[in-house]
Amino acid sequence: MKKILGIDFSPKAEIALLKILGKDAYIQYEKFQETIRIGDNDMVLLWMDEDQALVEQKIGKLRCACNFQNIPIIVMHDQPRDIPSQPYVIAGATEVLSLSDPAPACRNIINGYLIPGREPLPEEKAYLDPFIRNTCHILKTMAGMDAVFKKVYFSNAIRIFGDVSGIMGLSGNSEGTLAVTFYWDLAKTIIARMMNTEEDQIDAELIHDGVSEIINMISGTTKKDFVGKPHHFEITLPSVVVGPGHQIGYFQNTAAAVLIFEVDGQAFALHVCIKPKSAAA
């Protein structure tokens, strides 16, 4: 049984949702709180308030509470028209649905997101393993920290929801993008450990250099593992971006893998989207 967390639903909206999803759906309703926990829920449905900025803040908090896990956050409203979903998606929502959309559409979309994610194919595992190994090795070597790979999920594009991310464009035999993304606290901890200094010594420039160096090292070392293989790539200059909601590239017929790691009880994600040029669709 899939567990859904319904947040800020009015009794009227609860009834409308029940009509769409049927009686079998297991939804636990709560009011939004700053310290909200997602727990073992498989999905979050958030009822949209009038105030857009407030909704965006709530989405940001919920996305952060998901700690990089692939938990869909679906924003629902009862406004008669399809309102622009872009601001909510940038804030971290997965989808925006209206109760005035046809019920089969809402039901199918919600159920679609509840279908379990797939495991990597053998060929995907083969090219993801070096990234996993090298990411852990880099943190161990440079910061003396033990990162553990937790999980992978797949998406159609790289969409970043952390506070600070390092992005590397790939070219050559394979094309694509790598992006590592952290929340501030973990980025600061790692960089302070790399420099063997206190976290309060870490300024914006060091965050920039640190995140940029981490994505540089992940790409540089993994590139070596791919010499002579179809996934071999060349790297460019890393870009560091702040804030959530960036979507990078959109490679048709290619899946972006999101590798989730944990270090010191905090998670970070490495997005890997790589497509050998020789491979056809």
């Binding site: 790399m194 420099m195 063997n196 200094t197 420039e205 060091l206």
Partner: peptide, 11 residues
């Protein structure tokens, strides 16, 4: 060019 790497190496 990275102040971070310079910091690490200098130490």
């Amino acid at each position: 060019d990275s102040r971070l790497v310079r910091g690490i190496v200098e130490k």
